[in-house]
Design a protein around this nucleic acid. Structure first.
Lengths: 248, 248
DNA sequence: TGTCGACTGTTTGTATATAGTTTTGCATGC
DNA sequence: GCATGCAAAACTATATACAAACAGTCGACA
């Protein structure tokens, strides 16, 4: 199965804004579009990006395209092969254990910090995103679920106030969006409901300022996710299908 | 006091390689030069960078200069003001407590992980850098001390094997280089000797595979550094000098 | 004398052109 | 049938050109 070129998807995203782009906005539009396409797997891991083609699709010159690509490379979402082309960073299943380790630590640290440093405006935002997540679970909208779940936890991290943690955590959650996207493609919605409850408990602990409980809930939440993904991968690897497309 | 333009410093660095630069090397050279200049405070925090001038100094066009600057911005070492100029990122003394929090956690996590995952080739590299650090302390070479100390701890993080931790830790240590540079300007060399001993203990714990001891030593090492910098800043803030230049 | 506004110079953001490298396809020889 | 070498195409890295935005200055007017 040869991977088709997802020209139309990106092109449509570009066409929406091609008329009202101003000086200084071009790079941002390209960056946002590509980033979203990568994280939602519209652009498959490993697929090549051609500067000239993207320039045509976005109605820009190659210069802002390159700048957006450099930024995405710096974040690890793209891989630049010198004098060769640039590809979407493959999902690194080999290092998944280290990913889980980092993710778990950040879940704990950010939730704990939020319980200590949260202020009213943080709680408002967190609760709003908690509701958005619950709504997307009710709608069984997998893409919205993944995106709002990410935003929910980033909001908690922001309440913690430590910019270094927030940034690493956001990067981990984004990276995780790609794995989760694979994951959610093949299972019922029983577990997301469980997440809704866990989110609710976390918010309560944060609001109460109970750092230890928040920490424990963060750890449990992380363990939950890790266990599910591991189960999924084990099952999938055993049957030997589907992942081959992405592993390459 | 108006900040002088450190043209010559960067220019000399550029001149060294201007003759033997090849396609694909230009951006890397600019990136490395600027990065080093920023971290060693040759380029003062807050000082502006002019693309055209840098292009002249490096004998390149503005395109590779911009690309290097975009990468440095993504790492937080530069601050881009849209349609205005780009400046060296100021040192954020306000968020220093969060910096210390992150640094301490990473010291603990990386040292612990190293004790678990280290392999012979890691130990060889770590010991080599430990010796380099001791040598630069003996020479009372502050710049080398700071740089090798950074490399020593990054090597430990690499032995831990978790790329996410290594990357955050390296970024924190680099950011710290700028603070330490201020710090080392005004004190005797008694404390670096203490660091040499602490490094030695850490290596021993890592080699023995004693994770808990390694963790504790990492925490103690971090606390040591934090306490010293806090003392320095408190004293300096009290006297009201020197920091004004950088705080702006 | 102070304030507002147009003008000018400087610098960035984007477009286009040029040069150099890698890949790919084909042809030729073994 | 397969390997090897050459040529052309494709694409990237860098250079240059152009246009928009902002900062500072000077002058007009209140």
């Amino acid at each position: 199965m040869t991977s088709k070129l997802p020209d139309e998807d990106i092109e449509s995203a570009a066409a929406d804004v091609s008329t009202l782009k101003k000086r200084g906005q071009g790079v941002q539009i390209v960056y946002d579009s590509l980033r979203q396409a990568i994280l939602e797997l519209t652009l498959e891991p490993g697929s090549p990006l051609d500067e000239t083609r993207l320039a045509d699709q976005f109605n820009l010159s190659r210069t802002p395209i390159r700048e957006a690509m450099v930024r995405l490379s710096a974040e690890g979402l793209l891989l630049t092969l010198p004098n060769r082309n640039t590809i979407v960073a493959p999902i690194d299943f080999v290092n998944l254990p280290f990913y889980f380790e980092a993710l778990t630590l950040m879940y704990r640290v950010t939730t704990r910090s939020a319980a200590v440093h949260r202020r009213p405006e943080h709680l408002i935002k967190i609760k709003s995103l908690e509701a958005s997540y619950a709504a997307s679970v009710a709608r069984r909208d997998a893409i919205a679920m993944i995106a709002t779940n990410r935003d929910f936890h980033v909001a908690i991290a922001e309440a913690g106030g430590n910019h270094y943690f927030t940034q690493l955590f956001a990067r981990l959650l984004d990276e995780g969006r790609r794995v989760l996207r694979l994951y959610y493609q093949s299972f019922d919605d029983a577990l997301p409901r469980q997440y809704v409850d866990e989110h609710s408990d976390m918010v309560a602990a944060i609001e109460a300022g109970d750092a230890d409980t928040a920490d424990a809930l963060g750890a449990a939440h992380a363990a939950q996710i890790v266990r599910q993904i591991q189960t999924y991968i084990a099952r999938d690897t055993a049957s030997g299908i589907a992942l081959g497309e992405v592993l390459r």
